[in-house]
Amino acid sequence: ALTIFLFSLTGIPLTVGFIGKFYLFAAVIRGQFYILAIVGILNSVVSLYYYLKPIRMMFFEQPRGDEGTVRFEAWNYSLMGVLACATIVFGLYWSPIISFANRSLSFFTGPA
């Protein structure tokens, strides 16, 4: 689940984080702030290094003893699973989120 969340923060496609970054950069480019868009994209690439470091440690390095063992209950695993699935589902089918955001925006700004 942590891997999915970190990929979403990075903006990897098929996650909801990609959709958020896509709409953000599209708005910045539409506003003709090209320097800001380039800086944002480069910052996303740099963040990939930092977000992949915990993933590398989880899957490719051996644990150092029993000092870091954490116990979870069943509802913790259930919640992480539901949220990880929602991250992927809304990355594939994002129209409900966009329509909700548009309705919320029109509520505050009035009908267009």
Rank of each mutant, 00 (worst) to 15 (best):
Q32K: 15
A84K: 02
L14M: 09
M80V: 09
P111F: 14
I97M: 06
Y77C: 06
Y34K: 11
L9F: 13
L2P: 09
S78K: 13
W94I: 11
T87L: 03
V28F: 00
P111K: 13
G68Y: 01
Y51G: 02
F7H: 03
T15N: 03
I55C: 00
R30E: 14
K21S: 04
R30S: 08
S47P: 03
I98N: 11
E61S: 09
L105Y: 14
S99T: 07
F7D: 04
A1S: 14
L9T: 04
L52I: 15
G31Y: 01
L14I: 14
S106Y: 13
G31N: 07
F107M: 13
E67L: 12
S95R: 07
I55V: 15
I4W: 00
V89F: 13
F22S: 15
Y50S: 00
G81H: 04
A26H: 11
F60M: 08
L48V: 05
G91D: 05
R30N: 13
R103D: 12
Y23N: 09
A74M: 14
L6C: 04
S95M: 10
V39F: 15
G81V: 10
W94L: 05
I12F: 12
I55G: 02
L83G: 07
S78G: 09
F18P: 03
S104R: 02
V46T: 09
V39K: 10
A37P: 12
I12W: 02
F33E: 09
R103E: 07
F25C: 05
I35L: 15
D66N: 13
Y77D: 03
F25Y: 10
A84I: 12
S47I: 05
E67S: 13
A101S: 12
F59L: 08
I38W: 10
Y34P: 02
F59M: 06
C85W: 06
S99Y: 08
A74Y: 07
F18D: 05
A84W: 01
Q32G: 02
N43L: 10
L92S: 02
G81S: 13
R103M: 07
M80D: 06
V89A: 15
F7C: 15
F60G: 03
P13A: 04
L36K: 08
G91T: 10
F100H: 11
V46R: 12
L83K: 10
G40N: 06
E61H: 12
S78I: 11
Q62T: 14
I19H: 07
S8H: 04
F33V: 07
N43T: 06
V45F: 13
K21G: 03
L79S: 10
L92W: 13
R64K: 14
Y49S: 02
L83T: 14
